[in-house]
Design a protein around this nucleic acid. Sequence first.
DNA 1: TTCTTGATTAGACATTTGTCTAACCAGCTG
DNA 2: CAGCTGGTTAGACAAATGTCTAATCAAGAA
Lengths: 125, 125
Amino acid sequence: MLNQKLPAADSAGQVCCTPLVCEPLSVAEAEEMSVLFKAIADPVRLRLISLIACHEGGEACVCDLTEAFDLTGPTISHHLKVLREAGLINSQRRGTWVYYWINPDVLARLSALLGPRVPELAASR
Amino acid sequence: MLNQKLPAADSAGQVCCTPLVCEPLSVAEAEEMSVLFKAIADPVRLRLISLIACHEGGEACVCDLTEAFDLTGPTISHHLKVLREAGLINSQRRGTWVYYWINPDVLARLSALLGPRVPELAASR
DNA sequence: TTCTTGATTAGACATTTGTCTAACCAGCTG
DNA sequence: CAGCTGGTTAGACAAATGTCTAATCAAGAA
């Protein structure tokens, strides 16, 4: 029978070694992480995150983002909503414009799950 | 106008700093990476990867995997195919059984795209 | 107030995705 | 060979997803 303990993780989501490779992901954690991965598993949303993160001041207004795509405003709005509901980005209205910025903690959490924090693990096969 | 240069990366897919945060992802790269993220953006596939990686010897046969889920054989086979076609895992038939193992390079590439290799970046906001 | 611009919401619709059953293929063993 | 077990392929189908148009909301300007 396969073991399904949760990987050890502190409050920031950091782990001692890549949990994916340390011990089997629990059903609940797989479910939780897949929601986050689904959010970024779209070319438009990946570029949105990148555009927001790279924009000066670390934030961008929707009009800046919309003009980078051949898509309608509502479609961009929809993608931003998906990212926001996943917790990957935050937003705030300032006058006429709405600004978005990324939540680096959540991004780091995804990276930590996959990443060879301990390079030897990746090289061991 | 937004810049769309490719991030600098060496042959192993490692980058100097998180490309997502350094400069905007190109359309082509976003498309390419989204294929990989789509592959892991599923609770079953996340657990499959984890189960394979954690299994002794770094590989697992399909029968080991199937019994960990309340899903039919063909469904597991389908998910393994998605992962294999994305390049995340490899397989080999040995006699009656088919064995799967992960491709750590591809996993590391995903992690590197998201990850705060340079922690200061994540804390800069 | 009314108009204009920036952004979101609602709803429709085609495409993609995850799951299943049934059929099939690949090796072993008697 | 025939039969058995492990695994994949094919095809059907319901649910989820990405996009659009039309309508709506929010804030500032005339």
